[in-house]
Each structure stands twice: as structure tokens, then as C-alpha cells.
Amino acid sequence: MHHDAARPDPDDGLTVGRAAELVGVSVRTLHHWDQIGLVRPSDRTRAGYRVYSGEDVSRIHRVLVYRELGFPLAQIGRILDDPDADANVHLRRQRSELLDRIERLQRMVGAVDQMLDASRRGMRLTPEQQVAIFGADWRPEWVEGAEQRWGDSDQWGQYEQRAAALSTDDWEKVAAETESFEAALAHARRSSVAPGSAEANGLAERHRDLMRTYFDCTHSMQVCMGRMFVQDPGFAAHYDGLAPGLAQWWQDVLFANAAANGVDPQTAEWE
């Protein structure tokens, strides 16, 4: 079989297992990306096995960077398939956004470093320490307001127990995860993702996973939180500051996902 000299021998490509091992993701993840058309192995060996070429692996790395920056997979696919943007355009864009994120994370690390000698842990931090870790948008009264609303609930007991077990390193990770998640929310809102869509429901479930850091969050509880995000001026200002109209859109997303899981948003209670 003759091979074009300018094209690598497909037998030099990577099987899905080898590609997953080298880039640090699971085989299941690569299979999923293949199924949704995000990254597909473009070559075959002489024996007929599908393999990832060098260009495919480069695309995997671009996906990983955009995912780390909080972009939903559907949006990553649209960005990478933009006919007006080549690989260098993506690299320059990613470099700029990564530098912005690095700067934010460095500020967070500096705040955490100042607290390493503190004896108190978790959310039982002073308001000043909370702001230092989570940034200027953090409002210490959110914790106080939550305690007033739900201090007698089983979930608040879970919250106090789990929060007290977190180290400052853990809180740094939680802050980074929260920042990444809110970036994904803002991108989805700006991209006019429809409440009730698979992408929107995925964000709602990602929010439930994030809440499990503190307590076991049901869909009914998410509905109650969605109401608060719109009705509470502090929360509404926070979300709308991320993207115009985000607070109401986020409530609509949580309501739609709850309804899809058998919960009536009109009658849902904190349970």
C-alpha cells in the first residue's frame, strides 16, 4: 500500500486506549467525544483499527483547555469548527483566557497563603477571610442568610459537618470549581442555551454535584434556590453581573430540570 510522503503512516497513530492514557482522560470520555462528533479518530491502520492522528491529538488538547476554562462541550465543538479560525487562532485565544485565569488563581493562592496559619477551617471563617479567598464578589452575608433560612434543617447540619472537614486547600479547589461553573453558566446564557435542553439540564446537574460539597441537594431544593437567586437582590445582582439576565434564566433552567425529574416547580419545598 502506498502512503503519501506528506502524511504520517496511520500505523503511527494512537489507539483510543493509548490516546486516553497519554492525554489523561478516560477511554469512555474519548468514546463519548467520538459519538457527539467532537473529536473523532480520523485514521485507520492497515489492520482496520481506528486511530488518532497527530492533528486529532492536537484537537483533543484544545478541547481539554476549553473544558478547563468552563466552556460546555457543545460550544467547544462550535468554536473548533469555526471555518474562520485556524489552530493558531484557537491557541492565541486559549493563551489569553488562561493567562486571565492564572492571574485570578494566583490572587486566590495569595489569599490562601495568608490563612494557612489560621486555626479555624471551613466556612467558619471571618467575613474578611471569605472575601479574601472567594474574591470581591463574595458576600459573607450569604452564609448568614442561609443559616437564617435553613439553620434548623438536616441539610444545614450536613453543611456544617462537611464544611468543617474541608481544609484551606479544599476551599481553594471549591473556589476554582465554582468559578469554572459560573463561567460555564455565563457562556450558556450568552449562547442562548434554552432551559429544558440537554445542555441546560447538564448544567443543573453539575450544580447539584457542586452542592454535594455541602449537602445532599434534591431537585426540590434546587427550585427553592432558584427562587432565591431571583428574589434576593444580592444573588440576583451577582448572577446578572456574570451575564445579563442570568439570574432569571438560571431559575428557568433549574425549574425545567426539576420538572423533567418529576418535581412541580410551583409547589416544591425545601425537602
Rank of each mutant, 00 (worst) to 15 (best):
S119G: 15
G24C: 14
R18H: 13
V112I: 11
T126V: 00
L30W: 05
P195Q: 09
D4W: 04
E141T: 13
S119C: 01
L242N: 04
R18P: 02
R107W: 11
A176P: 02
H2T: 13
L242T: 02
F235E: 07
T178I: 00
D113E: 14
A20Y: 04
A259N: 05
P41A: 07
A136Y: 06
P8E: 08
E205L: 12
N261W: 00
V193F: 05
D81F: 06
W249P: 07
Y49H: 15
R44W: 03
D209F: 10
G234L: 11
D264T: 13
Y52H: 06
T126M: 04
G37T: 11
Q251V: 00
L64Q: 08
V230N: 05
R124G: 01
D81W: 06
N201W: 00
Q35V: 06
S192W: 09
D34N: 14
R107T: 03
L80S: 01
H61V: 10
S167K: 10
R40S: 13
S119T: 06
P10M: 01
L246R: 06
A163C: 10
E160F: 00
A5R: 13
G110Y: 02
H32Y: 15
A85H: 07
N257G: 10
G24Q: 03
D9V: 00
E97D: 04
D154A: 15
Q114E: 12
A237Q: 15
E97P: 00
T168V: 12
L246T: 08
G157M: 05
A175I: 03
E177Q: 07
T45L: 09
G135K: 15
D82L: 11
L22H: 07
Y214N: 01
V230Y: 05
D56N: 14
Q35K: 12
R28K: 15
D43S: 00
R124T: 04
Y66Q: 05
F71W: 14
E160S: 05
R124I: 02
Q155A: 10
E97L: 13
D232G: 01
Q222E: 08
D12G: 03
V23A: 08
A136L: 07
L64I: 02
A47P: 05
Q148M: 12
V143Q: 10
E269Y: 04
L22G: 06
P83H: 08
R212F: 12
E182I: 15
A176W: 07
A200E: 05
H31K: 09
E179Y: 12
E55H: 03
R107N: 10
G110A: 08
F255A: 09
R67W: 00
G226A: 11
H61G: 09
D11T: 06
D170Q: 00
W150Y: 15
F181V: 07
A186V: 14
A243G: 11
R78A: 15
